[in-house]
């Protein structure tokens, strides 16, 4: 249960987040296509999920032009798995001409040649390039259970290849790795990353959004997991990423990168027409507000 109707309230009853200005644009460059079928994926990406398609560079240009006019500060390239997109490197070059970029990947395509090309693209830009790689546990027994057999070692090899090319990848870990949110869990994770060759490990911990595949793996949202106006503050609402970001897929512009499977979260076809308040009616909104998380780096 994620949507507003299911929770039995009209959309006017939800707290609204104001759009303060477009700082961040997410591009679903791989749509919902992925080489993996992770059991906790909040949009159920897989090799055969084509509900959002692969974006071409040509399709991205109008959005990049619009983002430039609107003074966007940063860009994220995600999916699905971005490196499935054959144009990912030209897309990255075009994005980095305009501003800093972060690519979110499962790390399986990060071989020496790709990392060398990424290094050249990063060095040619005036702006920062971050690569975020997902790990879901301290070893194959945790990670592969969620992401598939053999994926832990391949992801670690990708992380090593990045480090060999002077990148400082951010390793993203979800709370599916039990205990990772605590001090001990974090310390263990840092030790793991040091042991695989990251001399300056960087970590981002994300909560689980109980939608998509994750709703089946663990559980979906309960009806009480909704926000109400009397339980939110203006400061808390202003800190949400939907106050300053939008997500672009082949199907249009969405309020955030989490809710692209919700028809009510599609706000328009162009960025400019989506810069309006949004009612926080979804279970996922509850997770963002309560955990204080942002998908940004």
């Amino acid at each position: 249960m994620n949507g507003p109707q299911e929770a039995g309230r009209s959309c006017d009853a939800w707290p609204k987040v104001e759009m303060t200005g477009l700082d961040t644009v997410w591009f679903y460059v791989a749509g919902t296509l992925c080489n993996l079928r992770c059991t906790h994926c909040f949009i159920s990406c897989s090799p055969d999920n084509r509900s959002h398609g692969m974006m071409t560079l040509q399709e991205m240009h109008p959005y990049l032009d619009e983002a430039e006019r609107l003074g966007v500060r940063e860009y994220y390239l995600t999916g699905g798995e971005p490196f499935l997109n054959r144009e990912i490197l030209p897309i990255l070059e075009a994005t980095l001409r305009q501003g800093p970029a972060t690519v979110l990947t499962n790390g399986l395509f990060l071989d020496q040649l790709t990392c060398r090309k990424l290094r050249a693209i990063a060095d040619a830009s005036d702006y920062s390039l971050d690569i975020r790689v997902s790990l879901d546990g301290w070893g194959p027994e945790d990670h592969d259970r969620i992401r598939g057999s053999g994926t832990f070692h391949r992801a670690v090899n990708g992380i090593r290849a990045l480090a060999e090319h002077r990148f400082l990848p951010i390793v993203t870990v979800t709370e599916a790795a039990e205990g990772v949110g605590g001090i001990d869990g974090r310390t263990r994770f840092l030790e793991l990353l040091l042991s695989v060759g990251l001399s300056r490990p960087r970590i981002k911990i994300l909560p689980l959004w109980r939608i998509g595949a994750e709703a089946g793996r663990a559980r979906g949202y309960e009806s009480w997991e909704r926000l109400s106006s009397d339980a939110t503050t203006p400061e808390g609402l202003a800190a949400l990423q939907c106050s300053s970001g939008r997500a672009v897929t082949t199907r249009g512009v969405y309020v955030c990168p989490i809710l692209i499977d919700e028809p009510g979260a599609r706000l328009g076809a162009r960025l400019e027409e989506t810069l309006r308040p949004f009612g926080l009616s979804y279970g996922a909104c509850h997770t963002c507000y309560v955990s204080g998380v942002t998908c940004r780096t």
């Binding site: 700082d23 983002a67 430039e68 006019r69 609107l70 003074g71 966007v72 500060r73 940063e74 305009q98 501003g99 800093p100 005036d126 702006y127 920062s128």
Partner: peptide, 9 residues
């Protein structure tokens, strides 16, 4: 920061 403050912004 310099590297995350692009010209349009």
């Amino acid at each position: 920061w310099r590297s995350t403050s692009p010209v349009p912004f």
